[in-house]
Amino acid sequence: MSDPRHDAVLFDLDGTLYHGARPIPGAAEGVNGVRAAGTPVRFVTNNASKAASAVADHLAELGIPADTAEVSTSSQAAASVLGERLPTGATVLVVGTAALAEEVAGAGLRPVREASAEVAAVVQGHSPDTCWGDLAEACVAVRAGARWVACNVDPTLPTERGQLPGNGSMVTALRTATGRAPLVAGKPEPPLFRAAASSAGASSALVVGDRLDTDIAGAVRAGLEALVVLTGVTTPAVLLAAEPAERPQYLAADLTALTAPMGELRIGPQPGWTVDAGNSALTVSGNGAPLDLLRTLCDVAWRNGHHEIEALDRHSRAALAELGLS
């Protein structure tokens, strides 16, 4: 990718580069292509369970060389938020992994695991080992008036086994128990993206991700352009129904598309397809690439409201079937 409009690329990880321990085909090729073009890359993840160094090591194992300094995590963002709001040495109850506790300590704060009168804040990030006892300690602290910061509120976490409960599911349990809501440090809030872009010296970075409600919504809030890939949770039907605050500028099947000119990936009218907005349906005709049809459909649907889709010829019916929109 070589595009003067984007001076860095901020990659999501889960669902974009890999599913758990399984790399997504084409991911390494796409990232390496961006590097070869001389564009800085950053890896931005809402997963707070691993240290940045561990994330970099995992990427390297998947054929994507990465420096620790290129990794931005929601645990780093949460620790930064706490460091800005608490005095040095303040006590923070950690619900999450040792990596999250290390980030808290690195911000000049004292991480603990049990509620007490000294606890000034609670920070909550994903850990597969979080249990009722952890949430109970956090509940006591939050009810006593401690600040509450969530690394992210993703309801699910993509893995090689499919979508499993994410940090947001645990956050919801604590919200129910306390009647409180946390300050969110990671996506879709903009600070994580802004910090990643700033570390690359970028002012117009491109965000690449698979989730509309985190990756794309976060890019919109941060004032950055975004590319959505269909390797994670977003489907063509979900994309067509996207609200304005969750709409990307670009669409690709996977990261191999980053070797193509960005103009070819832009959502809008595409060669080979005609989409008309009628009173009750979008009528489709033509004979081009199915993904170009989706780019055209999104453009028309977003400008005219989401409608039913009617194919006027066999090529259109085949393309819609391939997209799962028939």
Rank of each mutant, 00 (worst) to 15 (best):
V119E: 06
A107E: 03
A52L: 10
S169I: 08
E103C: 09
G96T: 02
S75C: 09
V41W: 04
L86C: 12
T97R: 02
L86E: 06
A54H: 01
D57V: 13
S74P: 03
K50R: 15
H58M: 15
I64R: 00
G145Q: 06
A52R: 11
P111A: 13
T156S: 14
D129N: 10
E61R: 13
D67A: 15
G96P: 03
R110V: 14
D129P: 01
P128L: 12
D134T: 05
T97M: 05
L174E: 01
A115C: 11
T178Y: 13
A37F: 15
A138D: 03
A52S: 15
K50L: 15
G38N: 15
E103N: 11
N47Q: 05
R143S: 13
T130E: 00
S169F: 08
V71M: 06
L93P: 03
D154L: 05
L135E: 01
V81R: 07
G168S: 08
E70S: 13
L59H: 02
P40F: 11
L164G: 05
E103Q: 14
W132T: 05
V44S: 04
A105F: 08
V149H: 02
V119W: 04
R85N: 13
P87Y: 01
A141N: 07
A138P: 04
A121G: 07
N167Y: 03
H126S: 02
A54Y: 00
T130I: 14
Q76E: 14
A107N: 07
L93V: 05
Q163I: 14
A138H: 05
R143E: 13
A146F: 03
P155F: 09
P40T: 12
G108S: 10
G96C: 09
A52W: 02
L164A: 14
L100T: 04
T91Y: 02
